[in-house]
Simulated scan of single mutants.
Amino acid sequence: MKHMVLGGLLMAATLTAHADFQYRTPMGMAFNASEAVAGAPAGAGSIDCAENSCLAIIGGTVWGVGYNVDGRLGLGDTDSRYEWTDSGQPADKIAAGERFSYALHQGKLYVTGTNSSGELGLGNATSQNAWVDSGVTADDIAAGIHTGYILKDGEVWSTGSNSWGGLARNGSQTEFITTGLSATKVVAGGYFALALSNGTVWGVGMTSQHPFGNYGGVTQNAWVDTGFSATDIEAGKYHSLAISGGELYTIGRNTEGMLGRTGAADQWLSTGLQPSMIEAGDWDSYAIVNGTIWAAGANSYGELGLGSTGAISTFADTLLEADEVSGGSYYAFARKGGALYSAGRDSFGKLGNGTGTSVSILTFTQVYPTP
């Protein structure tokens, strides 16, 4: 959820091997790959999902699916999409916020969506429904609920709402300003943010659910060093994941079982898994271990892809081989090669299967390229 995603690499699958695949143009018109011109996108690259919408880099441009009432998909309108649709915006990296989106292309930051809290960093509060050049350069990006972050010149910069202390600085809320923290990665949770600085996890924001430690429920308005050593981090709405010593550690809210372990929720404790990738959805957690997706959490609509509903409090193997996984609110996408698979609740068309009905898909089902 709402994190920096490296992308831009076009994966596997060829037009000749899948002549019946369908793609979507920016206008939403379908055509068969057999009718496509040479160079049409044959597979997906990186993915990043937010609460009710998801972004992917396909053929070097940003594609979107799901809820779009605020223009977060950057398609020039506010109509939700039930199938993956090309915005035409070139991108190397993407970050999906709850109601806004970021894309990096050749070091330039492009933004779209809600801007009521200044989360687009444009120096104003005017929302956008198509991608615009923010005039900002950055190395990495992260997007939360109403607050956005970039890595620039080795430091974390922020913009947007400061209602929960997430800006970690004073000054304007409508433009990117440095927080002063040197970091190698930043991720945005629901009402908090994490950063990796000098090999340890730093946190800022609300602490009532202990997403980075027990601070007595007192909101942290400045970055605090948790002292926990890690090499990777991810943030959900109220919980966090980290890789430390090669193992997956979790902390924060565990009411729905998303920590995937027993023990104190306000402490970083190991799950025993040794993942190559980690991801935090709003109410779920995912990890890729030995090439397959393992998952734990609410699973209210089958978003863990295990073929059932109901909370799973210990990580379970979905048996789905994947290179990447990204979770939102009660749904998830997985990528294997150039193919995208989705599971969970299909509200607002966010599963990308073309139906737009609020049904539950209990196992990961391929939705792009269209089988």
Rank of each mutant, 00 (worst) to 15 (best):
H3C: 01
L6Q: 09
M11N: 15
L15Y: 12
M27W: 12
A30L: 11
E35Y: 14
A42M: 07
G43Q: 09
G45D: 15
I47N: 12
S53N: 15
C54W: 09
L55F: 14
V69C: 05
D77P: 05
G88P: 11
P90L: 13
D92C: 00
A96W: 03
R99G: 13
S101Y: 13
Y102M: 12
L109H: 11
T114N: 14
S116A: 07
S116T: 15
E119C: 06
G121K: 06
G123R: 05
G123Q: 10
A125F: 07
A130D: 03
W131Q: 05
S134H: 01
G135V: 06
D139Q: 06
I141Q: 04
G144M: 02
H146C: 03
T147I: 04
I150Y: 01
I150K: 05
K152F: 01
S161F: 05
N162T: 01
L167C: 08
G171R: 10
F176P: 01
G180C: 00
V187H: 01
G190C: 08
Y191V: 12
F192W: 08
W202R: 02
G203W: 05
G216K: 04
N221F: 03
T226A: 03
D232V: 02
Y238I: 02
H239F: 04
A265D: 14
S270C: 14
T271C: 12
G272C: 10
G272T: 13
G272K: 14
I278Y: 12
S285C: 13
N290P: 00
G291K: 11
T292C: 10
A295W: 11
A295S: 14
A296K: 07
Y301E: 12
L304N: 08
L304H: 15
G305M: 07
L306E: 10
G307D: 06
T309K: 15
G310C: 05
A311G: 14
I312H: 15
F315I: 00
D317E: 01
L319C: 05
E321H: 12
E321V: 15
E321I: 07
A322G: 12
D323G: 13
G327Y: 13
S329V: 11
A332C: 10
R335Y: 04
L340C: 08
S342V: 07
G344M: 12
F348I: 00
F348T: 13
G349P: 05
L351I: 11
G356V: 00
G356L: 03
